[in-house]
Design a protein around this nucleic acid. Structure first.
Lengths: 244, 244
DNA sequence: ATTTAGAAATCTGGTCCAACAAATACTGGT
DNA sequence: ACCAGTATTTGTTGGACCAGATTTCTAAAT
């Protein structure tokens, strides 16, 4: 009982608004999911049904479905069909576990600059809200850096440290952004570091940050934190070509 | 069988280790990128060359290429072919681009604080990079605020103004974040404003921001911009009755 | 007659092929 | 150096077949 979208002469050539046909089908699929209010676990129409519904070739529908699959929005089992899922978070992580392509230098610099703006720039508000519990937590998190096993664990702890710092701001928008950027930041943290680097240098840098924080030394805090972020940049630029 | 007229012998059914054929091609593409040490900007072989190289159909290669495209690892333009890129961060943000529910007071404050950290906090870098063209563009964008028709158009222009400001930083990470937050920021901008408010107050505030910018008056710029963002907060608290 | 095990028909996604359209790079002539 | 035509490449379509899952039907057993 498809709604009256039968062939009533509506032979709009597939160039609607977006560029390619598969892009439009991707949009139509998202719209379909949204309009039909499909929840996780629900089934999508078969590919051939979608072909008729969207007036597109099966190859186009398949490529569009592949995009949604890559986005972690649908899951398709052979001979059974496609169902709605939500693996976007894990897909976001997979994007950066692609060891085929390193983080580009510009991405690295941009993200570190962004973190600097947030973390260093909010020093005043952090000091305003700082409580004893915050300092304790930071010390506790950082202490775990001394007993790490592998580099992945280390970067997780490093990330947790900075998130705990930002957490003081009680700003949901910033926390959400960090949540999304987590896989990128993790990769960036590992850049040019070894397990030993984490256990010594990173640990000490964090320690100095906490010390200045506990002393409510705003300028010192900003200096130590900025320095901490810059050191990562130095690690990166050492192994790549310079740009003009 | 297919055009196996070339060197036969190796009749390995293309199911090597991964499940589907397109998955294996995705893996082969990753391997190719890794082995050839392809960097951002380099070109990939044409689709038909990849077909021959991987002994796969063009459809399969296209679907595999679509996956890499969805992952933000390659960018393909008609006739020119596929080139390596690194838009993974952008894609990661795109995954979470929906769900614009009602703006609560805390959301408002958080987002405005976030914008303050970015825009006000980056004043130094903005002044470092500032060019005449930037000032001209900002004036031109703001002038459109004087001839708006409805409030949606006004908020779009308002947003464009701030994006143009941030654009000076040439920071992809920040631009991506703004892109994702755009629907929320638009709603925040409209909060407590009328068409007339935009044409007078907002216009004048923007004007002052540009003036201080053109005069390279960093403190004045920061003051005007911070003030501009804060005024929105006042508008919000006046008209809202909170919901539990 | 009811139940149920097995066989057949039908669907569905996965892969491939051939062809055409659109867009642009390349080539040759002036 | 410029212009036009050719050729190559991606984008899109339609069709075909396969292998496995699902459903339906048949027939044997209770």
């Amino acid at each position: 009982m498809n709604a009256g979208s039968d062939e009533s002469g509506i032979s709009i050539p597939n160039a609607l608004e977006s560029g390619s046909a598969v892009d439009t089908v991707v949009g139509q699929l998202r719209e379909l999911i949204s309009n039909a209010n499909l929840k996780v676990g629900d089934s999508l129409p078969t590919e051939r049904e979608l072909c008729a519904q969207f007036n597109a070739s099966r190859n186009t529908v398949r490529e569009a479905m592949g995009v949604l699959k890559a986005y972690g929005l649908v899951e398709v089992r052979p001979k059974v069909g496609a169902t709605i899922t939500d693996n976007r978070m894990s897909r976001a992580f997979e994007l950066f576990s692609f060891n085929t392509l390193e983080i580009s230098k510009k991405t690295f610099i941009d993200v570190q600059a962004f973190r600097g703006l947030i973390e260093v720039g909010s020093a005043e508000q952090i000091l305003d809200r700082l409580a004893r519990r915050d300092v304790d937590d930071l010390y506790r998190i950082n202490s775990r850096l001394a007993e790490i096993e592998d580099i992945n664990e280390a970067s997780e702890i490093d990330f947790a440290f900075h998130v705990r710092l930002i957490y003081i701001l009680d700003n949901t928008a910033i926390m959400d952004v960090y949540k999304v950027m987590k896989p990128i930041i993790l990769r960036i943290m590992q850049k040019g570091k070894t397990r030993r680097t984490y256990m010594t240098e990173t640990y000490n840098e964090h320690d100095k940050v906490i010390e200045t924080l506990a002393a409510r030394d705003r300028l010192g805090f900003q200096y130590q934190l900025r320095n901490h972020l810059m050191i990562g940049t130095k690690n990166f630029t050492e192994e790549t070509e310079d740009m003009p």
